[in-house]
Write a protein that binds this DNA or RNA. Structure first.
Lengths: 155, 155
DNA sequence: GAAGCAGATGCGAGACGTTGCAATATCAGG
DNA sequence: CCTGATATTGCAACGTCTCGCATCTGCTTC
């Protein structure tokens, strides 16, 4: 697994821009943050905190969990990642959200799908109308059964 | 805040019936389960696992966490309780659901509201139509800002 | 390039949950 | 009422995540 040395960043991330974003908020560019951002840049979809820590450790074995979680918080403040809680309550991070979206978790097969903002619009509108409640779609996490699983259950 | 509002002093719970339900599944009636059920019968609204443990301990100081969680699982299987995950990912249990409902969490003030099934119907229908996804309303937990908090934020 | 300020890190402790395993107690049967 | 089968418990270790605090270091200034 751990072939250290060369890997191909699949996503073009402008390091210096992130660094600039940090500075603009009076925040600092540290080796630990660089490590996490490098890991994130190679990550797609959803990752748990534990996975992120493990990946960081394979880049820098001295990685400390609390630092990762704190950096993740900072990065979330900059909009680089987003987190929500899976069906089991564990944190799930989502990298560089290309669009605002929520998640759907199937309790049957464990799969996860993204719900784009426009599809969630009905939900948002519904609650805004009835409760004047502003739904945070990025944290939206709905559990249930997907088409395949609910068919099996029905029988 | 306090939206978890209503506290029902006593709810008519038929102990012997629960015992019978357990036995019908080959499960056993133990002092520990009796303690937890007694606590639950005095509880209304949402409770965290930790709170439940604390309350059990005030009835029986020898209460062990893992036993409580395991019993809660069993009870959930019987439909006596239901759990979901709050905005922070912590478990929240609700007792003898008088009606199927989900939850709304305000990230601003921390309040929680219940969303009755009929109000959640739109959401459920929307996802059933677009994805053939069967939403589990009892696990539905939506975060965002309540009317009061979003007004403050708007400024 | 040295100094100082404030943000970050490292580390330990702690809260919440989960799991494996050996010992125990509930319940059915004789 | 005694006995056996097995559901449960107690315990301890572990995993995920948060927090406080002393120390350190990135960044700005002079």
């Amino acid at each position: 697994m751990g072939s250290s040395g060369s890997y191909v960043p699949t996503r073009p991330v402008d390091w210096s821009e992130i660094r600039a974003q940090l500075r603009a908020s009076g925040l600092r560019w540290t080796p630990q943050r660089r490590t996490l951002i490098e890991v994130l840049s190679r990550t797609d979809g959803h990752v748990t905190g534990a996975e992120l820590i493990e990946r960081c450790r394979s880049v820098d074995p001295t990685t400390i969990p609390s630092t990762v979680y704190r950096t993740l918080d900072v990065l979330e403040g900059l909009g680089l990642v987003r987190h929500s809680h899976g069906a089991n309550g564990r944190e799930e991070f989502h990298v560089l959200p290309s669009g605002v979206h929520g998640h759907l978790h199937c309790t049957g097969c464990g799969s996860t799908w993204e719900i784009p903002a426009d599809e969630a619009a009905e939900v948002v509108e519904s609650l805004r109308a009835s409760r004047r409640f502003a739904v945070d779609v990025t944290h939206l996490s709905i559990s249930g059964q997907c088409a395949g699983c609910s068919e099996k259950t029905a029988h």
